[in-house]
Amino acid sequence: DETGKFLVLSLYDYQEKSPREVTMKKGDILTLLNSTNKDWWKVEVNGRQGFVPAAYVKFL
């Protein structure tokens, strides 16, 4: 199980638009929880879990 094993870097600021999403700032290091959807990845940032656009992050 690779859940929570990968870190990704936020390339852009992102403001959550729904309760299922999370806000991140450019340069944030996020824990990747799920990347099965090619468009939206589930991450943990600042103690919160939610989705961010996959195009806004990259693997470290």
Rank of each mutant, 00 (worst) to 15 (best):
Asp1Gly: 14
Asp1Arg: 13
Glu2Arg: 14
Glu2Ile: 14
Glu2Gln: 14
Glu2Gly: 14
Glu2Val: 14
Thr3Leu: 13
Thr3Met: 13
Thr3Ile: 13
Gly4Lys: 14
Gly4Met: 13
Gly4Glu: 13
Gly4Asp: 11
Lys5His: 13
Lys5Asp: 09
Lys5Met: 11
Lys5Pro: 14
Phe6Pro: 12
Phe6Gln: 14
Phe6Ala: 12
Leu7Cys: 12
Leu7Lys: 11
Leu7Ser: 07
Leu7Tyr: 14
Leu7Pro: 03
Val8Arg: 02
Val8Glu: 00
Val8Trp: 08
Val8Pro: 00
Val8Met: 09
Val8Gln: 01
Val8His: 03
Leu9Thr: 09
Leu9Asn: 02
Leu9Cys: 11
Leu9Arg: 08
Leu9Ser: 05
Leu9Phe: 08
Ser10Arg: 04
Ser10Phe: 07
Ser10Trp: 08
Ser10Cys: 15
Leu11Val: 09
Leu11Asp: 03
Tyr12Ala: 13
Tyr12Trp: 10
Tyr12Pro: 01
Tyr12Leu: 11
Asp13Asn: 07
Asp13Ser: 07
Asp13Gly: 05
Tyr14Asn: 02
Tyr14Phe: 08
Tyr14Val: 02
Tyr14Leu: 02
Tyr14Trp: 11
Tyr14Ser: 02
Gln15Leu: 12
Gln15Gly: 07
Gln15Asp: 15
Glu16Ser: 15
Glu16Lys: 14
Glu16Pro: 15
Glu16Val: 05
Glu16Trp: 05
Glu16His: 08
Lys17Ser: 11
Lys17Gly: 08
Lys17Val: 09
Lys17Glu: 08
Lys17His: 08
Lys17Ala: 12
Ser18Arg: 08
Ser18Glu: 08
Ser18Ile: 04
Pro19Thr: 10
Arg20Trp: 15
Arg20Gln: 13
Arg20Phe: 15
Glu21Asp: 06
Glu21Tyr: 06
Val22Gly: 01
Val22Phe: 09
Val22Ser: 01
Val22Met: 09
Thr23Asp: 03
Thr23Phe: 04
Thr23Trp: 04
Thr23Ile: 04
Thr23Leu: 03
Thr23Ser: 15
Met24Arg: 00
Met24Thr: 04
Lys25Ile: 08
Lys25Glu: 06
Lys25Trp: 07
Lys25Tyr: 09
Lys25Gln: 10
Lys25Leu: 08
Lys26Gln: 10
Lys26Cys: 08
Lys26Asp: 03
Lys26Val: 08
Lys26Ile: 07
Lys26Thr: 07
Gly27Arg: 02
Gly27Trp: 04
Gly27Ala: 02
Gly27His: 04
Gly27Thr: 01
Gly27Lys: 02
Gly27Leu: 02
Asp28Ile: 05
Asp28Lys: 03
Asp28Cys: 07
Asp28Ser: 07
Ile29Thr: 06
Ile29Gly: 01
Ile29Pro: 02
Ile29Trp: 05
Leu30Trp: 02
Leu30Val: 08
Leu30Phe: 05
Leu30His: 02
Leu30Glu: 00
Leu30Ile: 08
Thr31Arg: 13
Thr31Glu: 09
Thr31His: 10
Thr31Gly: 05
Thr31Trp: 12
Leu32Val: 12
Leu32Ile: 07
Leu32Asn: 00
Leu32Lys: 01
Leu32Ser: 01
Leu32Arg: 01
Leu33Ala: 02
Leu33Ile: 15
Leu33Val: 11
Leu33Glu: 01
Leu33His: 05
Leu33Trp: 04
Leu33Tyr: 03
Leu33Asn: 01
Asn34Gly: 07
Asn34Ala: 09
Asn34Cys: 13
Asn34Gln: 10
Asn34Ile: 07
Asn34Arg: 06
Asn34Ser: 12
Asn34Lys: 06
Ser35Gly: 11
Ser35Leu: 08
Ser35Gln: 10
Ser35Lys: 11
Thr36Asn: 12
Thr36Asp: 15
Thr36Lys: 11
Thr36Leu: 09
Thr36Gly: 10
Thr36Tyr: 10
Thr36Cys: 15
Thr36Arg: 11
Thr36His: 11
Asn37Tyr: 08
Asn37Trp: 07
Asn37Cys: 10
Asn37Ala: 08
Lys38Thr: 09
Lys38Leu: 09
Lys38Ala: 12
Lys38Gly: 09
Lys38Phe: 07
Asp39Met: 12
Asp39Ala: 09
Asp39Ile: 13
Asp39Trp: 14
Asp39Cys: 13
Asp39Val: 13
Asp39Ser: 10
Trp40Cys: 06
Trp40Pro: 00
Trp40Asn: 01
Trp40Thr: 01
Trp40Val: 01
Trp40Phe: 07
Trp40Ser: 01
Trp40Gly: 00
Trp41His: 02
Trp41Leu: 07
Trp41Glu: 00
Trp41Lys: 01
Lys42Leu: 15
Lys42Pro: 01
Lys42Phe: 15
Lys42Ile: 14
Lys42Met: 15
Lys42Cys: 15
Lys42Trp: 15
Lys42Glu: 14
Lys42Val: 14
Val43Pro: 00
Val43Ala: 00
Val43Cys: 02
Val43Phe: 01
Glu44Ser: 09
Glu44Ile: 07
Glu44Trp: 05
Val45Asp: 02
Val45Gln: 08
Val45Ala: 10
Val45Arg: 10
Val45Glu: 01
Asn46Ala: 10
Asn46Lys: 09
Asn46Asp: 12
Asn46Thr: 04
Gly47Cys: 06
Gly47Asn: 07
Gly47Trp: 02
Gly47Glu: 05
Arg48Gln: 08
Arg48Tyr: 06
Gln49Trp: 07
Gln49Lys: 10
Gln49Leu: 07
Gln49Gly: 06
Gln49His: 08
Gln49Thr: 13
Gln49Met: 10
Gln49Pro: 06
Gln49Glu: 11
Gln49Ile: 15
Gly50Cys: 03
Gly50Pro: 00
Gly50His: 01
Gly50Ile: 03
Phe51Gln: 02
Phe51Ala: 01
Phe51Gly: 01
Phe51Leu: 09
Phe51Arg: 02
Val52Ser: 01
Val52Arg: 00
Val52Asn: 00
Val52Gln: 00
Pro53Phe: 05
Pro53Gly: 03
Pro53Asp: 03
Pro53Ile: 05
Pro53Glu: 03
Ala54Thr: 05
Ala54Tyr: 02
Ala54Pro: 03
Ala54Cys: 06
Ala54Asn: 02
Ala54Lys: 07
Ala55Thr: 11
Ala55Met: 12
Tyr56Phe: 13
Tyr56Arg: 05
Tyr56Ile: 07
Tyr56Leu: 15
Tyr56Val: 07
Val57Cys: 09
Val57Arg: 00
Val57Ile: 10
Lys58Gly: 13
Lys58Pro: 02
Lys58Ile: 15
Phe59Gln: 10
Phe59Trp: 09
Phe59Pro: 13
Phe59Met: 14
Phe59Gly: 07
Phe59His: 10
Leu60Cys: 11
Leu60Arg: 03
Leu60Asp: 05
Leu60Ser: 05
